[in-house]
Each structure stands twice: as structure tokens, then as C-alpha cells.
């Protein structure tokens, strides 16, 4: 089997285009945030005597037109970037005539794509969440640059161990789960920042009206974090089970505490703890969000450290 270099080069070019589009999207999201109205003002207008209703989750829809336009442009750039991003993987797959997740570069690129799509879907359904755009697309751009610089691997054939239909099952779901946890983790970070900021404003040590005030209300961000984690957890569970089934035929045992297996288990336990913490008195809110952030940390550690520093059976370690 030979690699079609034209398609492989096209894939690499699209990678740069994607980074460019996402960077523009970040700028547009920034503009939307910076010129947007301040919901804090609105809250003061409502006043304390307002009837107890559902919490005011959403930033007012009555944004000035120009600001709405920044938001729309940001969404459009995000969508366009996601398309070229998809192209990166598509053309790599076509160039090598296999699923485009045979090494760390392709895996990580896939994870980031899932994160972007997950965020875009959320932001289309709830426009208020677009205000989180900078904080999602910012890390996305950083991640893409790091992937391009440090994880890049030439398009090539799969090693023998990866030639199995379980690649489609196990790795696809791992990518899905990871990408969704990525969005969830960022939401929890924003929730924690927002909580701290609100506490400072309440204590009078910080002035209201900062960028953080323009984010959706803490409860809304926390709900995004929880919903996405609830969505990602069964997928992750499935990915781990599928991995074990694959390991049984590839490595001779379904579980052997290989470093990657160990950290997948640790991540699973941390996310289980997060879901529990959300419904346990004394852990709700901040502490639970911290658990979610730790979960994302574990996922990233599992990708980077376990592949690049320790040695194990996972053949993704192929960083050229």
C-alpha cells in the first residue's frame, strides 16, 4: 500500500487553514464579548424584589446588532473551521486508505474536532453560550498549534496491531468521549472563574462589569458542564469496554494495567466521582467542578505523558 502524497499534502495544508479560521473565530468571539452589553446592569435593574422565577440564565437577547453580527461571524468561522478540520482527517484517511486515527497526531486532531463540534452544537441551541466561545476556541487554537508542532506524524500505513475493526469502535468512541469531556472541563473552569469573580464582586474586592460578567450565569455554565459530562461518560465507558475487548484479542488479556489502561480507568473513576459529587450534599457547585477539571487533566495527561514518556502497549506512541 502506498500513501497518496497529494492528498496527504492537502490534509496538511487544511490543518494550517483550520488553525487560521479558528484564530479568526477567536477574534470575533473576543469582539462579541468586549462590545457586548453587560448583563450585570440588567440584573440591578431587575432588583431584589423580583418574583422567584427560573434563574436568569441567559444573557439578554437584545444585544446591539453590531455585537450580534460579531457573534454570527464567530459562529460562521467556527463552522467553516470545523469543515476544513474535518477535511484534514478526511484527506488523511483517503491518502492512507484507512481510518485517520492511527497515531497520536490524528487522534488528537480528532479530539479537538469533536470538541469544536460539541461546542458549536451547544452554541447553536443556546445562543447565550456563544459568550464562552473565546474560552473554548482559544484552547482549541493552542491545542492545534501544539499538535501541529509536537505530535505531527507523516501519513503512513497502520502497524499490524492496529489492523482490526475494533480500531473503528474503540478509538472513535475514545475520540468522541475525550472531545466532549474537553468542552465539559472548560465549562467547569469557566464556572469556577465566574464563581470566584462573583464572590469578589460581592465582597467588594473586584469591580463588576469585567469580561467574566458577560458570561452566562454560573448555574447555566455549570449545567453545560454537567450535561456534557453526562453525555460523555457512557461513551467513555463504552470506549474503555471496547478497548478491553480489543486487548483480549490483540494482547492476550482484556486488562493488564498497562499505563494507558490504568489512566483510562483513573479518568473513568474521576468522572464517576464528578457525577456523584454533583448530587452529594457538600460537594455540589465548586468542589464538583474541581473534580471535573481534574478529570480533564487526567485525560490530557493520559494522552501526552503516557504516550510520550512512559512505555506501554498502545501503539499510538508513534510520534516521529
Amino acid at each position: 500500500m502506498t500513501v497518496d502524497t497529494t492528498l496527504a499534502d492537502l490534509s496538511d495544508a487544511l490543518f494550517s487553514v483550520t488553525v487560521g479560521l479558528y484564530s479568526l473565530a477567536v477574534i470575533a468571539y473576543c469582539a462579541q464579548l468586549a462590545f457586548g452589553r453587560r448583563p450585570a446592569v440588567r440584573r440591578e435593574l431587575v432588583g431584589a424584589g423580583a418574583p422567584v422565577g427560573p434563574p436568569a440564565d441567559d444573557v439578554p437577547v437584545t444585544e446591539p446588532r453590531s455585537v450580534r453580527r460579531y457573534g454570527m461571524a464567530a459562529m460562521a468561522l467556527t463552522a467553516l473551521g470545523a469543515l476544513t478540520h474535518l477535511g484534514v482527517l478526511l484527506f488523511r484517511g483517503l491518502a492512507t486508505d484507512r481510518l485517520p486515527w492511527g497515531n497520536m497526531y490524528e487522534f488528537a486532531t480528532g479530539v479537538v474536532l469533536v470538541a469544536v463540534v460539541a461546542f458549536a452544537v451547544l452554541a447553536v441551541r443556546r445562543p447565550a453560550l456563544r459568550h464562552l466561545g473565546v474560552f473554548v476556541l482559544g484552547p482549541v487554537v493552542l491545542a492545534m498549534v501544539a499538535i501541529g508542532l509536537f505530535l505531527y506524524a507523516e501519513a503512513g500505513p497502520l502497524v499490524a496491531a492496529l489492523r482490526s475493526s475494533w480500531l473503528a469502535v474503540h478509538v472513535s468512541t475514545a475520540i468522541l468521549g475525550f472531545g466532549i469531556f474537553f468542552v465539559s472541563g472548560i465549562a467547569s473552569v469557566m464556572y469556577l472563574l465566574r464563581l470566584r469573580h462573583d464572590a469578589r464582586v460581592a465582597a467588594g474586592t473586584a469591580a463588576p462589569g469585567g469580561l467574566l460578567d458577560r458570561l452566562p450565569a454560573p448555574a447555566a455554565i455549570d449545567r453545560v458542564a454537567h450535561r456534557t459530562a453526562v453525555f460523555g461518560f457512557p461513551i467513555w465507558t463504552f470506549a474503555v469496554i471496547a478497548g478491553a475487548i480489543w486487548a483480549e484479542s490483540a494482547w492476550g488479556r482484556f486488562w493488564g494495567w498497562d499505563p494507558k489502561e490504568t489512566w483510562a480507568f483513573i479518568a473513568w473513576v474521576v468522572y464517576a466521582a464528578y457525577l456523584h459529587a454533583r448530587s452529594t450534599a457538600g460537594w455540589r457547585g465548586g468542589p464538583a467542578a474541581w473534580v471535573n477539571v481534574v478529570g480533564l487533566g487526567v485525560m490530557v495527561f493520559n494522552l501526552l505523558y503516557v504516550n510520550m514518556v512512559s512505555t506501554g502497549l498502545h501503539s499510538y506512541a508513534g510520534v516521529n
Binding site: 494495567w257 466521582a273 456523584h276 503516557v306
Partner: peptide, 21 residues
């Protein structure tokens, strides 16, 4: 208690770490 379960879950995760390092 559920709280104990969470702590034990965390302990299990922590306990697995040296095994991978």
C-alpha cells in the same frame, strides 16, 4: 454513605497512579 463512596473512588484512582509511573 455516598460521600464515603466518592472518597473511596478517589483513593482507588490515587492508588492506581504509582502503578503507572
Amino acid at each position: 454513605a455516598m460521600r464515603t463512596a466518592i472518597i473511596l473512588l478517589f483513593l482507588l484512582a490515587l492508588a492506581a497512579i504509582p502503578g503507572s509511573l
